[in-house]
Amino acid sequence: MKRQRNMFLAACVLLLALCIPPLTNDYIVQVGTEMAMYAALAGGWNLIGGLTGYPSFGNVAFFGLGAMLAGALSVNAHWPYWLAAIASVLGTGVFALLLGLPLLRLKGHYFSIATLALAQATLAVVTNTKFLGGGMGMSLPIVGSPGIFYYVMLSIAVLSALITYLLIHSEYGNTLLAIKSDEVAAQAVGINTVLAKSSAFALSGLLGAMAGVVYAIWQSYIDPPTVFEPSITVLMLVMTMMGGAGTVAGPILGAVLIGILTQLAMAVSQNASSLVLGLGIIAVVLFLPKGIMGSRRSGKGGKRRGKNTFPLRG
């Protein structure tokens, strides 16, 4: 059975990932943590960009807000970090839900541009709010060990993949795919498209905030320009596209591939890493418009877009 084979593959990959900290060095664990973080972020982006067909260019807002809010609550309000983390994740989810309501009325490029503006506006607000650390950034207590953060990030990535899997195999996931195919027809069969889209956007925001919250305590120093860096959104997008938008494994595959490529390029030259990323984007658009998973599979979870559409149009 195809499903059993996929389950077996997933279990193997997970087992391999679990073995990394005891068997390798701190450097590899650090790279692995970053890959797991991006797998989680790309998985979150996939829910709104891949499944629902609304290519967001502002998902970094959720990552950044999650990190800054958790930091502020713990440093400035003296909450225990676990409580600050939960509050920050939930708060960011509500933020995504509320902003999704107006933003998701826009379609295609208009939505993309509006979300780009959302990320920049959030950055501006956070930078100018004293409670959130302002432009100075903030230092968090140094806790844990590299291995711990690796495992926490990994579990967020697994959660992200699990949510995607459950969605794809549910009628709610079919609802999102229906919206992606044809929103007017989706409404005509009684789907409350506003609710469906906004909840997908909120889920996307929750996953972004989770990664942000862990990133903050992992790095122990955060400032707005770093956590609101637009290239984080671009990476989420490129990884998902490269792996296969709308698939479960796509974002993970993309995150691992881009992660490895970046590290290899860094070994050659510091500046070459962004060159590799750029070439990667061009290669994906030209040769793999449906992504690695998308090009191989047909039917559910794979064949997501029309034959001739540009990938970013979803």
Binding site: N174, A178, S181, D182, K303
Partner: peptide, 14 residues
């Protein structure tokens, strides 16, 4: 206007 990413059966079932 059909849901082209879904199978025929999934279209009707939705």
């Amino acid at each position: 206007r059909i849901f082209k990413d879904l199978t025929l059966r999934e279209n009707v079932r939705l």
